[in-house]
Design a protein around this nucleic acid. Structure first.
Length: 691
DNA sequence: GGCGCGAATAGT
DNA sequence: CTATTCGCGCCT
């Protein structure tokens, strides 16, 4: 450390050193610079918010050819060797000081293509994050062996198969037009409300998405399909193989392992395939001539990236569609308020089936009360099922499998009467009784009073039970109630992909429901109360999404399909319950969005959250206000947020979203430059508020 | 984040 | 006067 190594940056030292009879330490410092475009703008991975911008380096002649825009490089930065991406080659530097030469080109593969760079930049801006963070999400880690092993040239694939005779879009009047538009190179944008397929793979949503990809490919353009989880990836993968033939698409998921993941990704980069299906990171896939971005089930929280800056698939894909002039398709059995907002502003058009078609395709929905008719039926009581649900299941088990959806254990520790399962109510104010925290005694969620001497207002019972029982226990109880019927469970631990058409009971948590061959004869949705009674703003939206998602696996009413919602309040009709009964997700989304607008909540406004202990939080807020926070911004709070921390919410009209994000990014930069030690969490679109 | 630089301070 | 420490600003 004693010598002056690592100070090439200093002009004076450089002069002194070159005057001394000493050998230059590095060949690069004496090597000639490339004649053409001698400067490279490099995004250096410093991990520091205030250094999240390009720095310029000279390109040594020996690296001239390899140092193309998009390649990974090593550069000397502040005395260290750091990784970076070449963003651009230019003929002159903007930086006035002396430039250091690039140290090396890690690989000549230009992994950062312009379109992905633009999308990543837009994403970083929208979420007040760093470009470096977004690129880490967008570009998988390099795997040298994979790079070597994969052919440069695309392998030969046969002709694109003809479109299937029976279109999965035939039930949607606007569907045909959408497909022709895709094929002819247009950019139609739609919110598609899918219908249940009654277990027919030729008309289900994966087939429809594959058909859309086929139409896009027939017009010479590529497609990105993003789905929430691996099971859906496999379903769409199979549908794509059927629609496109082999070798025209790849799967891209985080769990593939480094080599497989990088190989698949390289196939996309090198243009061997133009169609990708994957989970959220696939939204950034460098598809050539992108013609369509599509995603399934916008409301699934898996579409939200859990790493900074927490971008949502919806935002990434919308930006990619915009940049590429590509079509956009948000698909699902239900519609989120975020997509509804697009619909209202004309960003997307609806693709929906006519009411008569819907009535046939969806199961008949019935609502079993909060335990009203329970006691009379001992078999039902032992399974803790309303008797309507029990009778429905018993009848349906003669015709095929029955799905029972059970909210996740611990999802909401809300209490009900052990005897009749009516939701437990506070004696004073009639608010819901719940477990406020793990291990804490039950209390009223409204007035906070503890529960002493509970007495059920319906049956006079004195024992409380947690209304969410969990899949395993429900499975045991149901197994006893229907002796001789095979029972399967599917949940977070192990997820069943599909079940046969033969009679069986399938107990599943939301999102883990297996597909049934030929559709379920009946679908029971348990503990509706638990889903509705969450404190979150999105409780209603989320409940509708889950119920429709499960009920959509049932047979249509025309084929005897039935869905029973259990444990919903019957004395009043709640909008989510009505949405299910009428199978009208469009109506519900519209209504829900109107309500958000009235309350000035996302997605009708943009919000950000600042979370920190009191002192640093208030400092951060001051800095934020000095960094160009628009004066339309309202600062709400602070409210307690976990141990020791407080949280401010900042709210601006949608138009001022970019200005707010840039002020937040500036705040992040200032804090990083000052090496503030206290953690201040900055988050745009905090997921627990609204959208 | 890491490092060099200059100001401030302690030790001779 | 020099040796050490500390805070600050810069990094192409």
């Amino acid at each position: 450390m004693g010598d002056v190594g690592g100070q090439e940056a200093s002009g004076q030292l450089e002069l002194i050193r070159s005057a001394l009879p000493r050998k230059p330490r590095r060949a690069a410092s004496t090597e000639a610079t490339a004649a053409h475009l001698p400067v490279a703008a490099v995004l250096v991975d410093t991990g520091l918010a205030h250094l999240d911008r390009p720095f310029e380096y000279t390109v040594p002649e020996s690296l001239d050819e390899a140092a193309q825009p998009g390649v990974r490089v090593k550069v000397r930065f502040a005395g260290q060797d750091l990784d970076g991406f070449v963003l651009e080659r230019k003929d002159a530097a903007e930086h006035e000081g002396r430039l250091t030469p690039l140290r090396k080109v890690v690989s000549p593969e230009p992994v950062l293509v312009p379109e992905v760079l633009s999308a990543a930049r837009a994403t970083a801006e929208r979420y007040a994050g760093t470009l470096g963070d977004v690129l880490r999400l967008a570009i998988p880690p390099r795997h040298a062996a994979a790079e070597r092993a994969l052919a440069t040239e695309a392998p030969e694939v046969g002709a694109l198969p003809d479109a299937a005779e029976r279109s999965a879009w035939s039930r949607y009047p606007a569907g045909r037009h959408y497909l022709t538009h895709l094929e002819s190179g247009g950019a139609p944008a739609a919110s598609w409300l899918a219908l249940p397929s009654g277990g027919d793979p030729a008309s289900d949503w994966p087939a429809a998405l594959a058909e859309a990809a086929r139409a896009t490919l027939a017009g010479g353009r590529g497609t990105v399909v993003v789905v929430p989880d691996h099971r859906d990836v496999r379903r769409v993968d199979a549908a794509l193989t059927a629609a496109l033939g082999p070798g025209r698409h790849v799967r891209l998921t985080a769990d593939q392992g480094p080599q497989a993941r990088y190989t698949a990704w390289l196939k996309v980069l090198r243009g061997h395939v133009q169609v990708v299906v994957g989970t959220r990171a696939a939204a950034f896939a460098p598809v050539r001539d992108l013609g369509l971005v599509a995603w399934w089930d916008d409301g699934d929280d898996l579409h939200e990236e859990p790493r900074a800056p927490y971008p949502h698939v919806r935002a990434v894909l919308a930006e990619r569609a915009r940049l590429a002039g590509a079509a956009l398709l948000s698909a699902g059995f239900s519609r989120t308020t975020a997509v509804q907002a697009w619909l209202q502003t004309g960003v997307v058009k609806p693709i929906e089936a006519p009411t008569a078609t819907v009535r046939q395709a969806v199961p008949r929905v019935r609502v079993a009360g909060e335990g009203v008719e329970l006691e009379r039926d001992p078999a039902a009581a032992s399974a803790h099922l309303p008797s309507l649900a029990w009778r429905t299941a018993k009848e349906a088990l003669a015709r095929g499998p029955v799905l029972v959806q059970v909210p996740r254990r611990g999802y909401l520790p809300s209490m009900s009467c052990q005897t009749c399962r009516a939701p437990a109510r506070c004696q004073q104010c009639h608010g819901p009784i719940a477990l406020p925290a793990f291990g804490a005694p039950p209390a009223c969620r409204w007035c906070g009073r503890g529960v002493a001497g509970f007495e059920c207002s319906r049956c006079g019972g004195h024992t409380l039970r947690s209304s969410v029982v969990g899949a395993r226990r429900t499975a045991e109880e149901l197994g006893r109630a229907f002796p001789g019927v095979p029972v399967h469970t599917s949940g977070s631990g192990e997820v069943l992909e599909k079940v046969a058409a033969t009679p069986s009971l399938v107990i599943a948590t939301p999102g883990a429901e297996p597909v049934a061959d030929g559709g379920y004869a009946a679908v029971l949705l348990l503990d509706a109360w638990a889903s509705l009674d969450r404190p979150a703003l999105t409780a209603g939206e989320e409940a509708v999404r889950r119920w429709l998602g499960a009920a959509a696996l049932g047979r249509g009413a025309a084929d005897g399909g039935v869905a029973v919602l259990c444990g919903a309040p019957t004395h009043t009709t709640l909008p989510p319950v009505e949405a299910l009964v009428r199978w009208d997700p469009a109506w519900f989304a519209e209504r829900e969005l109107d309500e958000r607008r009235e309350l000035r909540l996302p997605p009708t406004v943009r919000m950000a959250a600042l979370t920190a202990p009191r002192r640093p939080l208030e400092e951060a807020l001051q800095t934020l206000q000095s960094q160009g926070l628009p004066d339309t911004a309202e600062v709400l709070g602070p409210l307690p947020a976990g141990e020791e921390a407080l949280r401010h919410l900042v709210r601006v009209p949608l138009d001022d979203g970019p200005a707010m994000a840039s002020a937040l990014a500036a705040l992040r930069g200032v804090r990083s430059a000052h090496k503030e030690s206290a953690t201040v969490t900055i988050r745009v679109d905090p997921s627990d508020v609204g959208t």
